[in-house]
């Protein structure tokens, strides 16, 4: 929906100008629009704090969403870089080969966002992987599975907030690769769990998470404070 990333102040201005019924036509295309409108009523205007080494600010609109994706790709790339650098004991040739592929995909995603965002890109984040035992297969594949499922739900949840069609298509190009990773890693953990009910509902729909939900989950592994005004 086009209007969702209009800064709240503009949104409110629009609301004053539109007759009630016209506003409903504008907001009522779907429940997500409705939710965004309900939330907009209680939101404050975006404020920008200057980023430092300890914190970053994602920004608003499409830039905010792209920086959010950039943050998640930084997390994944850092994790897989470590996995490939110090492979767990008993890793098979195929596993190492696929983990190396996945690492390269995540680095490609990270570097793409960095290049695309250019001067608007957030700084490099710092990570805390102390809760992960990189020498243990079960620890690594469980974490990898969690990251990939989180990534899929994050892209699925962020798509509706993008205003620019090309960015939506780009997010689509990435999310299906994350879903390929997720399914593979779930199969490593246990056979035939690639579409289990914790990620796919009875309508055959994958999970979506709002940026705010994702950032809370990811914060376990991210030392840098992320300032976000995203939903």
């Amino acid at each position: 929906m086009k209007h969702q990333n209009v800064p709240v102040s503009q949104d409110q201005m629009l609301m004053h100008k539109l007759p009630r019924r016209a506003f409903l036509r504008y907001a009522g295309f779907g429940s997500i629009g409705l939710t965004a409108w309900m939330m907009a009523a209680s939101c404050h205007k975006d404020h920008n704090s200057s980023p430092s080494a300890e914190e970053v600010t994602l920004g608003s609109g499409d830039v905010g969403i792209l920086n959010y994706a950039y943050a998640l790709e930084q997390l994944e790339a850092a994790f897989y870089t470590q996995v490939v650098q110090t492979p767990y004991s008993g890793i098979t040739d195929m596993e190492l080969s696929f983990f190396t592929d996945i690492r390269d995909h995540e680095i490609a995603h990270r570097e793409f966002f960095k290049a695309a965002l250019s001067t608007q890109a957030i700084a490099s984040l710092q990570f805390d992987f102390s809760s992960i035992n990189f020498s243990s297969r079960s620890s690594v594949i469980a974490t990898a599975k969690a990251f990939e499922d989180l990534g899929v739900s994050a892209y699925n949840g962020a798509g509706v907030y993008l205003q620019t069609p090309d960015y939506l298509t780009l997010a689509g190009k990435i999310v299906s690769v994350e879903a390929r990773h997720a399914a593979y890693l779930r199969e490593l953990v246990m056979t035939d769990t690639f579409v289990d009910s914790d990620v796919v509902d009875q309508n055959g729909l994958d999970l979506s998470r709002k940026p705010s939900e994702v950032l809370v989950i990811a914060s376990t592994y991210i030392k840098t404070k992320i300032n976000s005004q995203l939903p």
Binding site: F29, N156, P165, A179, D206
Partner: peptide, 22 residues
């Protein structure tokens, strides 16, 4: 994109197809 509820559902099907493909 004009219908965010439809878009949301389509995205949620899209990634399931990718899981299947994998």
């Amino acid at each position: 994109m004009s219908n965010s509820t439809v878009l949301q559902a389509a995205l949620n099907i899209h990634s399931v197809e990718a899981r299947h493909a994998s």
